[in-house]
Amino acid sequence: MSGFFTLVGRDLRLAVRQGGALGTALGFYLVVVAMLPLGLGADLKLLSRIAPGVLWIALLLSALLSLGRVFESDYEDGSLDVLATGPLPLELVAAAKALAHWISTSVPLALLAPVLGILLNLELVAYPALVATMLIGTPAVSFLGAIGAALTLTARRGGLLIALLVLPLYVPTLIFGIAAISAMLGPDDVAPPLLILTAISLGAIVLGPLAAAAALRTQMQ
C-alpha cells in the first residue's frame, strides 16, 4: 500500500510545482460565475435562488478542464508503463491518481465556492451546506472522471470527448447535491439526499478505478 501513497504524494508535488492546472480550473470557475450576474441582470432574489445550482454546475465544468491531464502526462512521458510494472495493480494506480486529482483540484474548487457565492448573493445560512455537499459529492467527480480520462487517453483532442462521456455520469451527484442543500435550508429531512450523495461518492470510489484500469489496459497494448 505504501506505493499508493508514494504515487499520491508525487502527483500532489507535481501539481504544486506545475501549478497551471489548478490555476486554470479556479480561474475558469471564477469567470463563469462572475459572468452570470452580467447575463441575468441584477435581480438579487433570482440570483440567490439559483446560486447553489449555478455554483455546482460551474464546479463540475471547471473540474472537467483538468481531468484530461490525470493520465495523459504519465502516458506521454512513458511513466504509465513503469507504473504498470510496479507492485500496485493498475486499479490502485488509477485510484491514487484520482485521489490526487480530488485533493489538488476538487477540494480547492469546493473551498472557492463560498467566495463565489458572494457574487451571487447566496444566503448566509447556505454556505456551510454548500461546502459540505461539495466536499461529500466531489469524490464522485474525480473518480468517475478518471474513467473518461482513461478512455480518451489515446484520442486526439480528448477533452471534448471527456465532457460528453463524463457529464451525464455527474447528473445524480448534481441532483442530490442540490437536493441536500435545499433540504438543509428548508423544512425537509436532510438525511436522505445527503446519504444518497455519500453513497454515490463511495460507489464512484470503488467502480471508477476498476473501469479506468480496464480502459488503461486496452490503451497500453
Binding site: G3, R13, L14, D77, S79, V82
Partner: peptide
C-alpha cells in the same frame, strides 16, 4: 520514453521510482 518528470529534480525522479517499484 524515459518516464521522467521535468518538474522534479533528477534525484527526486529516481527516489520516486525506487520507492514505488
Amino acid at each position: 520514453l524515459d518516464g521522467i518528470k521535468p518538474h522534479l529534480t533528477a534525484v527526486e525522479n529516481l527516489a520516486f521510482w525506487a520507492a514505488y517499484l
